[in-house]
């Protein structure tokens, strides 16, 4: 199958944007944490889970989504957020803990909410799956043809919420797609030591729904199987599971000593980089190197502007900590 050229270009530009966003974050996160790493110090404190290498999962399916469709993401959410079209400036400001952020600095990198494009994420493993099912249920009740996508890591497929939700979604034929990013590890634990089946698409059989496994971090194959799953959901035929073999180039979180994996692993993975593969495909369709460069410049510029915006924004006033617990009400202290 071939991806229509405009979609292929879109995927390329998004992947470049995501990669550059994450690489920039590596540097920004390190600010103020040297020479001694201290998780609570620096420009961006707290945990930081980056997704460099995992771009195909996000762009392959988001290429089929519209604003009306819902996406929920886990603790490693930047690639999904970018592919879904989350406001990059306000997202970055949120990660910097600034007042102009999506959550006015209250949420942080694991808790990004952009209702304009129906995006949310959270730090509790598998918790987003039922939320996506709920969005799918709402669409169904309102008679809309929108769908919901829940992104999770392969580790989340062992959580109760995953199984409970898939049964419920299959039973109610909800327009839900669960995308499992198999990056081979849940923190330090390899998939083979956490999961009784080799691939999680097999688990679809337990709920009588389709399940597919995309090998080798392939953005084009991801695009293809996503089209089927999204169309099926839009037609009202129910949920499906897509698992994609993907690669986590960086640590589980920044500062991860990565004692659990062979140092040679990542350089080998990087050799198969999905961005390079897309470049080859685009060149085959006679996209000029000039145009590719333009796309890259545009993507980088957007990212740079977002970081600039975040840096230049101010911190919230400490008193704002007491606001927003309830809708338009303040806490009495």
């Amino acid at each position: 199958m071939t991806v229509p050229l405009p979609k292929l270009k879109w995927m390329y530009e998004q992947m470049v944007k995501i990669r550059y966003y994450e690489e920039t974050m590596v540097a920004v996160y390190a600010e103020g944490k040297q020479p001694v790493f201290n998780i609570g110090a620096g420009t961006v404190p707290g945990e930081m889970h980056l997704a460099a290498g995992q771009e195909p999962a996000a762009v392959g399916i988001c290429a089929h989504l519209q604003k009306k469709d819902t996406v929920t993401a886990p603790h490693r959410p930047h690639h999904h957020a970018i592919a879904k079209g989350v406001d990059l400036k306000r997202m970055t400001a949120e990660i910097f803990g600034k007042k102009t952020g999506l959550g006015k600095g209250k949420g942080g990198h694991m808790h990004l909410f952009d209702p304009h494009v129906k995006f949310s994420c959270g730090g509790i493993i598998a918790a987003g799956i039922p939320h996506a099912a709920g969005a799918a249920l709402a669409a169904k009740m309102k008679g809309k043809d929108s769908v919901a996508v829940a992104f999770v890591g392969e580790g989340a497929a062992n959580a109760g919420a995953f199984h409970e939700t898939l049964n419920l979604a299959a039973l109610w034929k909800l327009p839900l797609i669960v995308v499992i990013e198999d990056n081979a590890y849940g923190i330090s634990v390899p998939k083979s030591e956490s999961t009784a089946v080799k691939t999680n698409d097999r688990r679809a059989a337990a709920y009588g729904i389709p399940g597919v496994y995309v090998e080798d971090n392939d953005p084009v194959e991801m695009y293809r199987v996503s089209e089927e799953a999204v169309d099926r959901a839009r037609r009202g035929e129910g949920p499906s599971i897509i698992e994609i073999e993907t690669y986590r180039y960086l640590g589980h979180f920044q500062g991860d000593p990565e004692i659990y994996r062979n140092p040679e692993e990542v350089p080998l993975l990087r050799k198969k980089d999905p961005i390079h593969r897309l470049i080859t495909l685009l060149e085959e369709q006679s996209v000029s190197s000039g145009e590719l460069e333009q796309m890259e410049i545009r993507a980088r510029q957007e990212v740079d502007e977002a970081y600039e915006f975040a840096r230049n924004s101010s911190y919230p006033d400490p008193a704002e900590a007491l606001e927003d617990v309830f809708h338009r009400a303040e806490v009495n202290v």
Binding site: G97, G105, K106, G108, D317, E320
Partner: peptide
């Protein structure tokens, strides 16, 4: 209140 992310908060 839930624990806010931003340092001053």
């Amino acid at each position: 209140v839930p624990i806010p992310y931003s340092r001053p908060l």
